[in-house]
Amino acid sequence: MTKINTNSTLVTVTGVDKVFKRGSEEIHVLGGLDLEIPDGEFLALMGPSGSGKSTLLNLVGGLDRPSEGKVEIGGKRIDKLSDRKLAAWRARHVGLVFQFYNLMPVLTAQKNVELPLLLTKLSRAERKKRAAIALDIVGLSHRTGHYPRQMSGGEQQRTGIARAIVTDPTLLLCDEPTGDLDRKSGDEILDLLQALNQEQGKTIIMVTHDIHAAARATRTLYLNKGQLSTEAVD
């Protein structure tokens, strides 16, 4: 597994504000937020809709920048990187799992999983091999040639997870990974995430509304009105 450094704290968010502008109106989503996530943690982020969970996830994943404050991953400050460098950093260090899987409908499971590897210098044969290993880890080695439309929601999400882990990223960010699945499929996905955390040491941040899902994490934090707490606020 590739690690950025051996520091026990992988993610450090310090004094982060995030303000969105809608016309002349300013919406403060996060205000002066601090967060530390140790390497190897499985963190669940909960909170009501609009509380800023996905925004925080996007900031940690380098998909967005804070209005104020800093975001360091493995000691590297990412909020100051150029768009180009940030894209390259994301490709190398972050695996993303989306609620609606976000697979390319025109590509097979195998090709979908190979997608992030197109950004590397790996040969075609090596890309194919690594994608096959990732699909095997998520239990889909028998579905490699199938298109997303030919797979169930659970299988599509497993493909999404295989795509997220194929580059062996430092950080796995999951935005409502079971939000679109039935309980049984959701449980299977959570089993898989838990195994990735416990057996492969992946650091996972999972945004969820589901207490049942959050129970699988090693720590749960609650976001409300832009602030983090260890206990849910009614």
Partner: peptide, 11 residues
């Protein structure tokens, strides 16, 4: 969705 996903992945 496709374009946003590709860019999120690092394209």
């Amino acid at each position: 969705r496709e374009i946003a996903t590709l860019r999120a992945l690092g394209f």
